[in-house]
Amino acid sequence: MTALLSLENVSRAFGGLRAVDGVSFGIEAGEILGLIGPNGAGKTTLINVITGVHPANSGRVIYDGRDITRLKPHQIAKLGLSRTFQIVQPFPKMTVLENVAAGALFAGQSPSMAEASREAMEQLRFTGLASVADKPALSLTLAQRKRLEFAKGLAMKPRILMLDEVNAGLNEAEIDDALAMIRKVAEKGVAIVLIEHLLKVVISVSNRIVVLHHGQLIAEGEPSAVLRDPAVVEAYLGAKYAARYGGAS
């Protein structure tokens, strides 16, 4: 089976810092891929490389059989790769509906503004934000803003959705809601890349996990196997953590 998205030996440096260093892996349709690693491991940079914000210095990003390494962010967005931001990035003065409609109109390429609004409303219902559709994005709570990011990502009609810490700062009930949504989206065939610090969340939802450390890929595979990997334990988890989660699952 060929991967929907594959990274081939991708590197990105900022000055002397190799933030992403020779990373290769693939993602298949409908898969939920957990991307974990310590702070500064290069997770967000990797997303920036894929989405064209900070193009790779070397290596290639292949999406659907096409080299997208050098494409611009807006072109990549239109091809069906969408992302959410770790630090939420709404258009503060626009309404929640307009925020999501922007995703549908520009990346999702809805034929008209009316159609974009209709699709946006659908995503707001799915993410449980329909009741605040006409409020300015600025007025939302953090949990709602995270869901707004999610709704925006979905309105872009993605084939790959990259979620950068959508659960950070949420309480348990909110996280459960978010995970249920993520699973539903993946069931429709959308590949999900999930950057996440809460290991419990990653393990419960991911089909596969990729671990980054100092910009390098140090482990890849089944969640339980990866968490038992000695390199991962040393770099990220600590032995106690590994015993608690790696052994249990």
Partner: peptide
């Protein structure tokens, strides 16, 4: 920046 990511040229 967010606009670019949302597919706005």
């Amino acid at each position: 920046d967010a606009a670019n990511i949302l597919g706005v040229n």
